[in-house]
């Protein structure tokens, strides 16, 4: 199979879905500009022009509402935010309308299958309001599907599922994954929501991860293997629906759980996964659950502060050693996966 980068996979999935469904249009700030949302909307603009790839005013609240109204009238909007933090300006239409439309009008009037992409900036001093990954925020509300694709194949497959399904979807993409390459099916094959993936099999400890942390966990697993510890990495793919089965089966096998996220611990993804395990397989745990998440402060800008702020493979290694009862060892620090990133944006 041929390989694509993560951003190419998104671009290809978008174009293929637009070819097959005239109702799909892309809307977002600067989606038609030279960078084309990190390349993801560029080919769509070149192919379909400004009638279907629409540069929007800086009006995130109204844009999300337009998407609801357009979807109610039969269109298929794909709204793109090159910084996910701007989604907070769209919270009302996303939470109060997009998520609730089908239910609130009785369940039989149709839904509003709006697809919303948010790109997480993280790194290069993006700071407190350009680094956030709000996947758990949206996953809290019944009615939405929320996914954090970690691989090029899933970046395309989950987008294809979103654009061909009837449920509104929020896709959170970590910008640091954009240059990642991987095998991607040529055809627009949907990746179903709610089906996790064993990114790496193992038997001593389970690392459940989302988005970028899947790769950090895989790198951690390599280092752990050198110490004789076999870590199983579970990529949940989607937070809602959450594949509880794959998580619980893995923990039942390993007896140990580390949950790794790109966001904060409180009331977040790591808390949810820990709760699922506590509810379904509490007796399987041979050690307390450890969570790898952001420290409780906003993201800083200064390089050393930023490097100290974001957890990575080394943090996951330490957590896995702890739940395995191993003393913290002097292990070489692993560089951040985005170490090669060039500024400014």
């Amino acid at each position: 199979m041929r390989t694509l980068t993560y951003w190419q996979a998104i671009s290809e999935g978008t174009v293929q879905c637009m070819e097959r469904d005239e109702r799909i249009f892309v809307a977002g700030e600067g989606v038609d500009d030279v960078s084309g949302s990190f390349g993801t909307t560029k080919e769509a603009f070149d192919r379909f022009g400004r009638r279907r790839v629409i540069d929007m005013p800086n009006a995130e609240n109204a844009t999300a509402g337009f998407a609801v109204g357009a979807a109610a009238a039969g269109a298929r909007p794909l709204v793109v935010h090159v910084r996910a933090d701007f989604l907070f300006l769209a919270m009302d239409p996303l939470v109060n309308m997009t998520a609730k439309w089908r239910y609130t009008y009785g369940g039989d009037k149709g839904g509003v299958p709006v697809v919303t992409r948010g790109v997480v900036g993280r790194g290069w001093g993006q700071g407190s309001t350009h680094s956030q990954s709000p996947h758990a925020t949206f996953a809290h509300y019944a009615g939405l599907h929320v996914a954090t694709p970690a691989t090029p194949a899933d970046a395309k497959g989950l987008l294809v599922q979103a654009l061909t399904g009837d449920t509104p979807v929020v896709l959170i993409e970590n910008r640091n994954l954009y240059q990642l390459t991987g095998e991607v099916p040529v055809e627009p094959v949907p990746t179903p929501f709610g089906v996790g993936r064993i990114a790496r099999p193992g038997s001593d400890v389970t690392v459940v991860a989302a988005s970028l942390m899947v790769h950090e966990a895989e790198r951690a697993a390599e280092q752990l293997a050198e110490r004789g510890i076999s870590a199983e990495v579970v990529d949940v793919r989607s937070l809602r629906p959450l594949d509880e089965g794959i998580i619980c089966e893995s923990v039942a096998k390993t007896g140990r759980l580390v949950v790794a996220d790109t966001s904060w611990a409180r009331y977040g993804f790591t808390a949810e996964v820990a709760a699922v395990v506590a509810e379904h397989v509490p007796h399987a745990l041979r050690a307390p659950v450890r969570r790898v998440s952001l420290p409780d402060s906003p993201a800083p800008v200064s390089r050393p502060l930023e490097e100290a702020f974001h957890p990575g493979a080394s943090t996951i290694v330490s957590a896995c050693l702890a739940v395995c009862g191993e003393t913290a060892a002097e292990l070489p620090q692993l560089a951040d996966v985005s170490a090669g990133f060039q500024g400014p944006f």
Binding site: V68, G69, G74
Partner: peptide, 16 residues
């Protein structure tokens, strides 16, 4: 809310 939603529906009518 329904101010923006109505604009979106009317937009979809034009598009179709």
């Amino acid at each position: 809310e329904m101010i923006s939603v109505a604009v979106g529906s009317a937009w979809a009518f034009v598009r179709a």
